[in-house]
């Protein structure tokens, strides 16, 4: 089975997941992003790469932050950006996902940026576009269910590479709700592809997938043990609905075991960086002194995120 993200020439035509992406493709995205980072520092923050292209932000699930960063990225590439919050429009009128896509294709969309609550929805859209002979329309996954959030994974990789230069010899820990996290899945695939020496996941059994170790990670339940010797720590957001239910007794108990404090951070390497995909729950998964501390690279992540999304959109739009 050919990787559905690559065209017959091996070019990236959709970005659906980091799983199975060749290492050269990932490196090319990161290298391209590096060039775009400087654009954000210029007076005129625009390049004409996507002039005349229509980028549709299709958000079937609410998101302000991710949608905004995609919008900024597309505008800096000079694309026309159309935002659609489908969660509150057509699907409520009975229109199916693929009907919506067909309609927007008829409006000459060039790139779909898709967020959907169901794992695999962007794959379905990409497959449908191929079936109806619209392979020139590109799909960028902005988060599907628990499955993947590849641009977040890429910006995390970019951040780690920026501070640590090389993935060989690195130990990276991902802490928290891995079970429901598309961010974790994408980052794990990216890290393993780039040859990271050790990837760890840390969390209670209720928040880890059944077969987590098959993703190529080491599983820890004791956070102190898991953080020892780490070069980078990625804290995951704990969704409100997970806090007081069958998965966890309370947010307070979660913080006690898995919240990142200065004291726990001291167990990692002295130059370890702290990351978080946002938005943060201070006092739940991360303590404020850590979030605001000198090891935190959470705000640079946001800046890099725009450059990475510019890189992804310009690369897929360049594929034919």
């Amino acid at each position: 089975m050919r990787n559905p993200q690559l065209n017959a020439r091996g070019e990236l035509t959709h970005l659906l997941t980091l799983e199975g992406l060749p290492i050269d493709v990932i490196r090319n995205i990161l290298d391209t992003a590096a060039q775009f980072v400087s654009i954000g520092e210029r007076e005129v923050k625009k390049v004409p790469l996507l002039r005349g292209n229509a980028v549709f932000n299709l958000f079937f699930e609410n998101s302000t932050r991710t949608r905004t960063t995609f919008e900024i990225a597309a505008k800096r590439l000079s694309a026309d950006v159309i935002n659609l919050n489908i969660g509150v429009s057509s699907t409520n009128k009975g229109e199916t996902l693929l009907d919506t896509i067909d309609n927007l294709v008829a409006m000459d969309a060039d790139v779909f940026v898709v967020r959907h609550a169901q794992s695999g929805a962007p794959h379905l859209i990409a497959q449908h576009l191929a079936q109806v002979g619209r392979s020139h329309v590109h799909v960028v996954n902005a988060g599907d269910g628990r499955h993947a959030h590849p641009t977040q994974g890429l910006l995390d990789l970019y951040t780690i590479r920026h501070y640590k230069k090389d993935f060989h010899g690195l130990t990276v820990a991902i802490v928290g709700d891995v079970l429901h996290s598309r961010v974790a899945r994408s980052l794990i695939h990216g890290l393993t592809t780039l040859g990271t020496s050790e990837v760890r996941v840390i969390g209670p059994r209720t928040l880890l997938p059944t077969a987590a170790e098959t993703l190529g990670v080491r599983v820890y339940h004791d956070m102190r043990e898991g953080l020892r010797g780490c070069d980078a720590i990625v804290m995951l957001r704990l969704q409100n609905e997970r806090m007081n239910g069958t998965l966890l007794p309370s947010a307070a108990e979660y913080f006690k075991h898995y919240g990142l404090t200065q004291e726990k951070l001291a167990l990692a390497r002295p130059d370890a960086i702290v990351m978080h995909p946002g938005p943060m729950n201070r006092g739940v998964e991360i303590d404020s002194p850590v979030a605001d501390g000198e090891r935190s690279v959470i705000l640079p992540q946001v800046t890099f995120g725009i450059a990475v999304r510019m890189a992804v959109m310009s690369i897929v739009a360049g594929a034919r």
Binding site: E19, S119, G120, D144, G145, R146, H147, A148, R182, R185, P209, T210, A211, A212, T214, L215
Partner: peptide, 15 residues
């Protein structure tokens, strides 16, 4: 099925 494929694809599992 609650196994390695559901883990990879982020699909809710049936044990």
């Amino acid at each position: 099925h609650d196994g390695d494929v559901a883990t990879r694809l982020g699909l809710p599992g049936i044990p």
